[in-house]
Write a protein that binds this DNA or RNA. Structure first.
Lengths: 183, 183
DNA sequence: AGTGTACGATACAATTATGTCTCAATCAAG
DNA sequence: CTTGATTGAGACATAATTGTATCGTACACT
């Protein structure tokens, strides 16, 4: 098997545990994260030299996952409305990671720039939605962008809380957005 | 002047600084809070014996303010739709404090119960909105409640970021809610 | 069996946050 | 002016977090 594809499952466990723990408590200690991952604290330090190293690594990975999933989802969408729909469908299951990106403002300039670029991309999608007549022109662009962010997290948390079927989540979010801010 | 009404402005400054600092960073140190309040760390400890004491005091005060503002705002509203509208109008300026309540889950059982009661009250408002036909019946109650919460924070943060005029915020939030989840 | 890698456990030092205390300065009221 | 209360600055002890190093063990691969 290819060695490059052979990433230790420990690293993944730590990342998952960290996202989970930090979502509940942004100040979660490394001990708590390691324990949740079922791993010794020393092992955590073997994979991530410091706390900021862990944070930036997670942020980068979440960005990678989100970008990949969204790119793949909207590949063959014709309209902007279609892109929004597919994006929501693909993004909501990653709600916890998406939310992590929003709540974690890293000091790393590269990551900050990348996050800005993502928001700008979303803004462009909103512009296209307006041109299609799917979003009213008297609703501020930043309001729509922030609303989409909020809906992704909202839908995910409702699914996670058991208040909503996973299959209904994206449709509900899409409806709330398009009808709420449509013209 | 009445001594009971004569609360030291220092306490208020600390509370404001703490809400502000904790909104940016939930793990903000007491030193940082005291500095932001323009007060020595010892003085902070004179007013709030410990960190949890500060947190619970702030939580309680925010609840008091929110309850008072909402109660006063919806006093003479006839319809549930009217109550929602006035509630948003009154609540959005308190967005930072409202958000503090949502993000801070105190261990104090009394405060937890009070928060639960507030959410339940909001749920009842949603029920009435449905009876009036303002909200579709196929949208889960918890989704509507969470959306209202999200809209308050969203509107406040957009105003705070300068992306939205304060006078437009409540209307936009109301529109997004009623059209987004209306029938 | 031998080897090397990754791991858990533990100890350790450095840093930081927290809570308590003291002392001198300031300020308002009498 | 005197008095009392409040404050800021700082010392101090304690606890928690963090990063590093060490040691013995388990496991996979040869």
């Amino acid at each position: 098997m290819a060695k490059t594809a052979m990433r230790p499952p420990v690293r993944e466990a730590i990342v998952d545990a960290a996202i989970d723990a930090l979502a509940r408590n942004p100040g979660a200690s490394l001990s708590a994260i390691a324990e949740r991952a079922g791993v010794g604290r020393a092992t955590l330090h073997r994979h991530f030299s410091s706390r900021v190293d862990l944070l930036t690594a997670i942020t980068r990975q979440c960005m990678d996952e989100v970008d990949a999933v969204v790119d793949e989802a909207i590949g063959d969408a014709r309209s902007a409305r279609d892109r929004l729909s597919r994006m929501l469908e693909a993004l909501i299951p990653l709600g916890d990671r998406y939310h992590f990106l929003a709540s974690e403002r890293s000091d790393d300039t590269g990551l900050k720039a990348r996050h800005e670029a993502s928001l700008e991309w979303l803004g462009c999608l909103v512009d296209e939605l307006r041109e299609e007549g799917a979003i009213a022109t008297d609703v501020p662009r930043s309001w729509v962008v922030a609303s989409i962010d909020a809906q992704v997290w909202l839908a995910w948390s409702q699914v996670a809380a058991g208040n909503l079927a996973r299959s209904d989540a994206a449709g509900l979010a899409l409806r709330t957005l398009l009808r709420g801010m449509g013209r």
